[in-house]
Design a protein around this nucleic acid. Structure first.
Length: 793
RNA sequence: GCGGAUGUGGCGGAAUUGGUAGACGCGCACGGUUCAGGUCCGUGUGCCCGUAAGGGCGUGGAGGUUCAAGUCCUCUCAUCCGCACCA
């Protein structure tokens, strides 16, 4: 037996797999019979300079699942690519010089190397990168499809502007009023922006959550983010101006309690409302100041407001109620105007108290309506429909649904992203670049530093172009796309990565999709995971694909924390390189998964790796020892043989059903422990083969080497069928019977399995230790067959 | 404020359907082998009392249901996460 040499073994098999393209799968030909296939995917990495241990956890887990499925006979698609557009490369170019392209491709090469060194079973022939024209050509093509169907549009809108990064941010990227990336306070600006109409799919995104096998927590985050609320839209008349103001409310039952009316400072018809009134100046000044305050400040300030001088009429009782401008009313939600019911809404109440506005209760302690004319005495809940019906009949309102979700703003005023294929013509407005002129290639620029204008705007050669309609001079769109557009469909491109006629062939995509198992961080719950679902539904509606949900099953790995902070592209982390050098990839793979449940956070410490490397060595030794034993006879029945079968059952169930990756390692360790104590057992060789076969998904290199070397197989373990436990060998012939008196364990005895109740009780009574506690009359005996006897006295 | 998750030895964790709490590993202690390498092997290791046999206690805390609770129920504490003036 040679000493275990991790590096020699790992390099040998990595070269072998690469030469053989061992993990490449072909797409089915049109007349192929359907087969069992499995699409395994982990979220693609952003190519920073190195992988960190969070990636190692993520991709090793996916690797175990991929091996496990492959060895169960599935055709497994397990591709990899790079989220290679984005700010960090551009910021690095600004800071240290160089081109974002060079930086990105250098990083990608470093990461590819690390991935190969980890031994991950990836189909590299399908690699896809967001920044390559062969990919972003189709990102642009898809964008144009959405434009064509009215699902991408341009409008002037208040946007979140980060003064440091000099870019617009999506709502998802503003955390507590600050930029998620640099932490600066975000400002509000009005700019012409491109939006995807994700709100058109709000209900579908909500309803189809029922169709997918996702963590409840993630579904909850999306549900909350979409924020559907049912209620009514009610028209309040301003008689003097011949104006109807519409409000959204979830509580039409409290309409009789509306004692004032409030509009947001940004409310567009405010000027018209106060025109000619003595309050006009005061109101408009207030609105200007209050509206200019950053959201964060607005939320923390005490509510304030000003009376406009106008009155609206409550449609149900004809009462005039004063209209106020108030800073607690949000322009972004509903209609930017609210009916205020201080008796039944905390915020309205606070405001009414401050400005001495009337408070009229319309619901009594029993939950019944009062002060509500013909609706008095009805339960408030049930009266909602009745009041909405009344409003509809009188054309003063209707049932309505409102969402918290906003359309997805995806214009970015930065360089390193997918160009938006639009040309602006004075005569024809925003004109799509014709399909046959795609891709609009991202050109070089002199200076990446954003100066209020996006970097592309300073490249005249790029910007000046003829209008596709009239051929007159026109200008290109200078913004680029949010990188979340790239990642909303990359998983489809993997299915058909070199197609130059279409983003993907529907037949092929339909074969592989949906992704059977997706793994990635929960931080993408309301970003990437929501956007991808939206794209999928759009593509389905456009007839480009047969499924409506991209990710059938979803799992979130925990964070690998370094000093309490998560390792990520922005925080840095521990690189696996040095660890591979010292301990080998197999030990690291085992270690990171053995640490604990994969969905829980890990406090990174390298302390356990050396012991895990020791286990691999031990495995190497014990298997070599056992391999000198004669082949185990078929059906050999010894305690070691039974242990081996039990281990097969445990590992199979843990991975296949429970999606647990730490406990199978413990089970294999137990089997190795038993094997080392019984190396001359007739089942020793069988146990050794079982160990090697079961550990293969976690430690594929050493397992393959042992399989082919010590155990003498000539075929590959990574393609060998997963072992199957013999059910007859899972039963034990003796069991440890627990004897309790009054629920306390007093003795444990070894008895044959399958004894009748009466015999079990007999055994229990025979125990001296039990007898010592049997004082007083026996009241009851509880028997759990093959487990325990509890005598109650 | 609303909603949710988690809490088990010195440490990471296991316990799948209410039925032996602490699997597996780390660490530690003692012994052996090798010898001076982050080697290998063995034994022990939840806490308390006791030389021992044995006994008591024990899954954040307090109650409860049950023959039996880490697991179910009520309350409570701590930590973390999502939403947050969303009408």
């Amino acid at each position: 037996m040679d000493d275990y040499d991790a590096h020699a073994i790992e390099q040998k098999w990595q070269s072998h797999w690469e030469a053989e393209q061992a993990f490449h799968v072909d797409n089915p030909a049109p007349d192929d019979a359907p087969d069992e296939h499995f699409y395994m995917l982990e979220m693609l990495p952003y190519p920073s300079g190195s992988l960190h241990m969070g990636h190692v956890l993520n991709y090793t887990m996916g690797d175990v699942v991929a091996h496990f499925k492959r060895r169960h006979g599935y055709t497994v698609l397990r591709p990899m690519g790079f989220d290679s557009f984005g700010l960090p490369a551009e910021n690095a170019a600004i800071k240290d010089g160089g081109h974002p392209l060079e930086i990105t491709e250098r990083n990608m090469e470093a990461i590819r190397k690390q991935m190969r060194r980890m031994g991950w079973a990836i189909d590299w022939q399908r690699e896809v990168s967001a920044h390559e024209p062969t990919f972003y050509r189709w990102t642009q093509w898809l964008f144009l499809k959405l434009v064509e169907h009215g699902l991408a549009y341009r409008k002037e809108a208040p946007v979140n502007w980060c003064p440091h990064d000099q870019t617009v941010l999506a709502n998802e990227h503003v955390v507590d009023g600050r930029c998620w990336r640099c932490g600066n306070v975000v400002e509000t600006r009005n700019m012409a922006q491109w939006f995807f109409k994700i709100t058109a799919y709000a209900d579908a995104l909500l309803d189809d959550l029922a169709l997918i096998d996702w963590p409840e927590r993630t579904k909850r985050i999306q549900t909350q983010w979409i924020g559907r609320s049912e209620g009514a839209e009610i028209l309040f008349r301003v008689d003097d101006l011949d104006l109807d103001i519409s409000v959204f409310t979830t509580r039409p039952d409290t309409l009789f309690g509306a004692t004032f009316f409030a509009v947001a400072p940004e409310w567009p018809q405010l000027e018209r409302l106060v025109d000619g009134l003595e309050q006009a100046e005061e109101v408009l000044t207030y609105a200007k100041i209050a509206g200019a305050r950053p959201t964060e400040e607005r939320e923390q300030r005490e509510k304030s407001g000003v009376f406009t001088g106008r009155y609206a009429t409550n449609p149900v009782n004809g009462e005039p109620i004063p209209i106020w401008v108030a800073d607690y009313v949000l322009m972004e939600y509903g209609t930017g105007a609210v009916m205020a019911v201080p008796a039944h809404d905390e915020r309205d109440h606070e405001f009414a108290e401050k400005y001495a506005l009337p408070i009229v209760s319309v619901i009594d302690d029993d939950g019944q309506l009062i002060n509500s004319a013909q609706f008095d005495g009805r339960p408030a809940e049930g009266a909602r429909g009745a009041i909405v019906d009344w409003l509809s009949e009188h054309a003063k309102g209707k049932a309505a649904i409102n969402y918290r979700l906003r359309d997805w703003s995806f214009s970015r005023q930065r360089y390193w992203g997918c160009p938006i294929p639009i040309i602006y013509c004075d005569e024809h407005g925003a004109v799509p670049v014709p399909e046959d002129q795609l891709p609009v290639v991202l050109p070089d620029v002199e200076d990446y530093r954003p100066k209020g204008q996006p970097p592309l705007a300073s490249n005249d050669e790029f910007m000046n172009v003829a209008c596709p309609v009239c051929s007159k001079p026109a200008r290109r769109e200078a913004d680029t796309m949010d990188t979340f557009v790239d990642s909303s469909w990359y998983f489809l491109r993997y299915t058909d990565p070199v197609n130059d006629q279409a983003p993907f062939d529907r037949r092929i995509a339909d074969y592989w999709m949906p992704i059977d198992q997706y793994i990635g961080g929960i931080d993408h719950a309301k970003g990437h995971l929501l956007y991808s679902r939206f794209f999928m539904k759009v593509l389905n509606d456009l007839g480009m694909i047969g499924v409506r949900e991209p990710f059938q099953r979803l799992f979130h790995q925990g964070w690998v924390l370094l000093d309490g902070k998560k390792m990520s592209k922005s925080q840095g982390g521990v690189s696996p390189n040095e660890l591979i050098d010292r301990f080998g990839a197999d030990a690291i793979r085992l270690y990171i998964l053995f640490y604990g449940p994969a969905d829980q956070d890990i406090n990174w410490s390298p302390d356990g790796i050396a012991p895990m490397a020791r286990f691999v060595k031990r495995l190497w030794r014990e298997v070599h020892e056992a391999a000198t034993q004669p082949a185990s006879p078929a059906g050999v029945d010894t305690p070691l043989a039974r242990k081996a079968h039990q281990t097969i059952a445990r590992v199979t169930d843990d991975v296949g059903r429970r999606f647990q990756f730490n406990t199978p390692i413990a089970a294999v360790m137990e089997l190795v422990n038993d094997l080392s104590k019984a190396l001359d057992d007739p089942a020793a060789r069988f146990a050794a083969e079982t160990v090697v076969s079961l550990v293969q998904p976690w430690a594929p290199h050493v397992a393959e080497e042992l399989w082919r070397g010590a155990l003498g197989y000539s075929t590959e373990l990574s393609a060998a069928p997963w072992p199957v436990a013999d059910p007859a060998m899972l039963e034990r012939d003796t069991i440890e019977l627990v004897l309790q008196v009054n629920g306390k364990v007093r003795d444990r005895i070894e008895v044959p399995a399958g004894l009748a109740d009466a015999e079990l009780v007999e055994h229990a009574r025979a125990s001296e230790k039990v007898q010592a506690h049997l004082v007083g009359a026996e009241r009851r005996v509880i028997i759990v067959p093959d487990k325990l006897v509890n005598i109650v006295v």
